[in-house]
Write a protein that binds this DNA or RNA. Structure first.
Lengths: 193, 193
DNA sequence: GGCCAACCATACGGATCAGTATGGAGAGCG
DNA sequence: CGCTCTCCATACTGATCCGTATGGTTGGCC
């Protein structure tokens, strides 16, 4: 057998990053309450003893996981769209992007439900502020005055937040085509030609 | 002393309705997790023994409380506005109403966070469906075709849901005047003249 | 005035979960 | 070979909370 097994054998021997990823997965799937040390341990095939070696406390895990999520979220969503020159088209592209990439929103939707916790709140505040500022800036560049741009951004972001909440209820019971039509109307209403 | 003390002495001796009201209050203030029997008992100055005489289980209390809330919500919000003849003005009035009466939304916002629970989900579904249908109907009467009316209603309701979520974060950090201006823009965008 | 039913206290059982204490296996290195 | 550091298992404590069992108190009613 070849020696030099640098990073093989992902079977046993976990790292902190493994725990963080598992935490984000179950957070997205089952909510913050499901991010429990013993549950994650079972899910990873180990016991609590492993966890408390990598992290001091449950909150430390959540904190680290969310910092990871916040960073990747910013890099993967907003950053690529900043390149779009025309501000109107930039917002349109943003709407299309977020409307066609569900998995990332699951974490945000889960966090939204635990926003009353002091541990979670700052994350919601920061990412929301960044996103609203992003859209506000685009609307401003598109010719709207400051307050109108801000209000339109607020409306757009509120509609986004509300939608991902209602989507879990299956409330806007729409087919794929109906959803696409909704997105088109969404854009049409918020970004007049 | 006059006999005939029909309903005096509200000090001791609770009724099921008292528990339901207390449940709704703490639900609105501290979320569903805070609706715990022992906590409510302390809050009401009694012990668990009292609770389990009035209700079989914690879920029974929540169920009863939410049925009470759902009924009063429907009566106090949508019903009075149905009288407004002009559909455009009806939606405008609805928006003004809900934007100026906070306390009732607290229960809905709290429920939204626990929508994954099978006990809560039906309530969210029913009230959301009713509200969306209400607005859709108004937009339809205002001259929009069926799908456009539905999409505008979805957008309006999503924006509402998202706003009450973000409001708790203090995210749309607005003064009173800014809020009023936002509502005006909200109406202006959704209901073109 | 005594009985009955509504209402509540006390005390316990059982489940869940965060965190601690402690010891053991396993790889690398001298 | 043996030591040590990393990583994990086992076992326990303590807190919280739902639900049960049971007995006590109070008000109305015959």
């Amino acid at each position: 057998m070849p020696a030099n097994t640098v990073k093989l054998e992902p079977k046993n021997r976990l790292s902190a990053a493994d725990w963080e990823q598992a935490a984000l997965d179950t957070l997205a799937e089952s909510g913050l309450a499901a991010v429990a040390v013993e549950a994650l341990a079972r899910q990873l095939g180990v016991t609590k003893g492993s966890f408390y070696w990598h992290f001091a406390t449950r909150e430390a895990l959540i904190q680290a996981s969310l910092e990871r999520w916040e960073h990747s979220d910013e890099m993967e969503v907003l950053a690529p769209i900043e390149a779009v020159a025309d501000p109107r088209e930039r917002v349109r592209e943003l709407i299309r992007q977020v409307s066609h990439r569900r998995p990332s929103h699951a974490v945000f939707a889960a966090l939204l439900k635990s926003v009353d916790l002091p541990l979670i709140r700052p994350f919601i505040e920061r990412v929301s502020q960044r996103r609203i500022d992003f859209v506000t800036e685009a609307f401003h560049q598109a010719g709207f005055d400051a307050t109108t741009a801000a209000n339109r951004a607020r409306l757009a972001y509120s509609a986004y937040v509300g939608f991902i909440q209602l989507a879990q209820v299956g409330q806007p019971r729409m087919s794929h085509d109906e959803f696409e039509a909704y997105i088109r109307d969404f854009i049409e209403i918020l970004i007049p030609h």
